[in-house]
Design a protein around this nucleic acid. Structure first.
Length: 280
DNA sequence: CGTACACCCTGGCCGC
DNA sequence: TGCGGCCAGGGTGTAC
């Protein structure tokens, strides 16, 4: 489900309820999501105080007073819900998929629900997070200073990949998914099939700024709600209303003076949406 | 080595 | 209304 803006929205929703609060109990309802939970998962987090919530790429990072960090990935359909004291879980989630339940010392519960179970959780030492198998090797954050046209030029050299696949590669830039790659390429007027290493530095500059812009705007909008995504407080994102190409096959291109319609092709097994007239 | 593809899983939607 | 087929925001392991 969630790409970087959705995970960031989840983080800002969970932080006020979790930060500075003790995890009084934890329960997992199945031994594994996508992967097995780390050994003694519940035992290791029970009694810990939550320090700060962070995010890296599409990973939610929950720093604990035990000097361990809980790493959570929401896969395609993962959702955290905050249940206030006496309140009921959201009616639109199937309780059969409530896989992890955290009980907090402030009487709130946090439920992790994930029908497809593509999400997963891990624990890693907070002082050596970058060595964790999921976090090691991630590329720069799209909103950070290390993501630049110089970096792209460097890392794309020698690769024979189209730009769509390159931007989905988390080692090249961390946190983009199918939606925001499609949107960024449209705004940068780059055809998704373009061989990445052949894009000029000037066009890479434009691409870097459109990636930054689309991600920043999506975070401001609270992410995109397509099917079941909602922030932890239940709020719906609304960036989906600003999609220029994603999910708009056969609909008119929104650029002024363009009479073309949006096309859909499949690249590396996923849909790419683009305007054949505006993106070269 | 890099790239391509199958696969993990459920649910919603579409067409018949 | 029921059912099969297709599609979905991701990441990994394996095969070339």
């Amino acid at each position: 489900m969630p790409e970087l803006p959705e995970v960031e929205t989840v983080r800002t929703g969970l932080a006020p309820v979790m930060e500075g609060v003790k995890i009084s109990a934890a329960k997992i309802n199945r031994p594994n999501l996508r992967f097995a939970f780390p050994p003694d998962f519940c035992q290791r987090i029970t009694g810990a105080n939550v320090l700060r919530l962070h995010r890296r790429a599409k990973y939610l990072l929950i720093g604990l007073s035990t000097d361990e960090t809980l790493i959570a990935h929401l896969g395609m359909s993962g959702r955290f819900s905050i249940i206030a004291p006496g309140a009921e879980p959201p009616a639109d989630t199937n309780p059969a998929h409530d896989h992890v339940i955290f009980s907090l010392s402030n009487q709130h519960r946090i439920i992790y629900n994930d029908p497809r179970r593509f999400g997963f959780m891990d624990l890693a030492p907070s002082h050596a997070l970058e060595a964790n198998r999921f976090l090691a090797g991630l590329g720069p954050e799209p909103l950070g200073n290390h993501f630049s046209s110089q970096w792209l030029k460097e890392i794309l050299a020698g690769k024979s990949q189209n730009i769509k696949a390159a931007l989905l590669d988390q080692r090249i830039v961390a946190g983009l998914g199918n939606i925001y790659v499609c949107e960024a390429l449209f705004r940068a007027a780059i055809h998704p099939k373009t061989l990445a290493k052949r894009i000029s530095e000037q066009r890479l500059d434009k691409l870097v700024s459109t990636v930054r812009d689309v991600i920043a705007k999506a975070i401001e909008a609270g992410g995109s709600t397509l099917r079941d995504y909602a922030a932890a407080d239940g709020a719906l994102g609304y960036f989906q209303h600003r999609f220029a190409v994603y999910g708009r096959e056969n609909q008119p291109c929104l650029n002024e003076n363009c009479t073309s319609t949006i096309k859909r092709i499949v690249q590396s097994g996923r849909s790419s949406f683009y305007c054949p007239h505006c993106q070269k």
